[in-house]
Computed example of a mutant assay.
Amino acid sequence: MTGSTPPSPTEDRIPGSPAEPRTSGDDQHLRILSTSDLAGIDISLSDVIATVEGAYRTLYAGESDNPRKLTVKPKDGHSVSYAMLGRDGSRDVVAIKTSYKHGLDKGREEQHYYTSLTLYDDVTGLPVAMMDCSRIGSLRTPAVSALLARELAAPGARSALVVGTGTQGRLALPFLLTALPGLERLMLSGTHPEGIQAVRDELHRHFPGRELELVEDLRAAAGDADVIVATAGGHTPAAIEADWLKPGALSILVGHGLAPSTLHRADRVVATSEAQMNVTGTDMADAEGKLPAVDTEFPPVLAGVAAGRTGAEERIFAYNSGLVVTDIALGHRFAQLALEQGLGTEVAVWR
């Protein structure tokens, strides 16, 4: 259920962003933004990329805080839970994100996944909103992959391969094309018919004139790709090896689909966060359970103070782990748009 609530008298403006109203409410109510509320909000891919890039730049400037995520996982591995706290210094917003997935030992259709984001205005001290974070994540992650590709792909990159057709795979190509409009060959490796069709639908929705090539020979496709984005689930049989890659290839790991050799034998390793890679990337460890050190994290690359690629023939491995500051920035952007459209339900939580 949604309801229209007039803007609170406590709203003011974000410093440096006069066109963007604050969205804080009062000290008794919390605005709840449901899955259906957020689904109805129209936002362009370029807006998402710009919002995420701004969050990275603010983090590198030392104006934001992004502590290491907390993880809880039972011994049998049937579920995993994450908690992430952060502060966006440009928006003056503090937020907590939680993520819980159950049924990791089962097929995709039997799994349960819940994620939420709660934002607070750090100027007024009042709550902004609590929202389902699934759409935020489905947009933020491919936007980060697109930024990684823009900064790290070899000059003149023309071909891209996406592995996986789940939530992250479905928007990977539209975001890549937004950041790298020179891409000509768009390849997909997937096994689920519904997922494959969903990838096609998203590509045609955002880029009506572009066609998708479904590949059967993964090794050959990987050898032709300038950019590889691996988004598959944990049960995928896909595992691209380092010696399949062409000189200059960029491999971006989001989920699964790359073998550990692509990391350990890379000429250069870039991570959105080395600390988070060491927490969530343990499946890429070597026989001794170790991960290599990264050559650079991504925020300084975006800021122009660290080199992303240092040679046209370098094979680069990039680890895309979500930083909560990007969720905060994008979640706050959605909260602004929701307020403008009168979306959400005000719940009296603290009375």
Rank of each mutant, 00 (worst) to 15 (best):
P18N: 03
E20I: 10
P21W: 03
D26Q: 10
D27I: 07
H29N: 14
L30H: 04
L30Q: 06
I32G: 04
S34M: 02
T35I: 00
G40D: 12
I43Q: 06
S44M: 07
D47T: 13
V48I: 10
T51D: 08
Y56A: 01
R57N: 01
R57M: 09
D76Y: 05
D76L: 06
H78A: 11
S81M: 15
Y82I: 03
R87N: 06
R87E: 08
R87K: 07
D92N: 15
V93C: 08
I96R: 11
K97G: 13
S99H: 13
Y100A: 15
K101F: 05
Y113T: 12
L117D: 13
L119P: 07
D121Y: 09
A146G: 07
L152M: 01
V162H: 02
T165R: 12
G166F: 05
T167L: 15
R170P: 00
L171D: 01
L177Q: 14
T178M: 05
L180C: 11
P181I: 03
L183W: 05
L186V: 10
H192K: 11
P193E: 02
Q197T: 14
H204Q: 14
G209W: 08
E211W: 02
E213I: 12
L214G: 00
R219D: 12
D224Y: 00
V229R: 00
A230Q: 04
A232T: 07
T236R: 07
P237E: 08
P237I: 08
I240Q: 05
K246Y: 04
I252H: 03
V254L: 03
V254R: 07
G257N: 05
L263K: 00
V269G: 00
A271L: 07
A275G: 00
A275S: 05
A275Q: 07
Q276W: 01
M277Y: 06
T280S: 15
G281K: 10
D283Y: 14
E288L: 11
L291P: 04
P292L: 03
P292S: 04
T296K: 04
E297Q: 09
E297L: 06
F298R: 09
G308W: 04
R309E: 08
G311Q: 11
R315Y: 03
I316D: 06
I316L: 03
N320L: 01
N320F: 00
G322N: 11
V324A: 03
G331S: 04
H332Q: 11
R333H: 08
L339N: 13
Q341N: 12
Q341G: 07
Q341F: 09
E346V: 12
E346N: 11
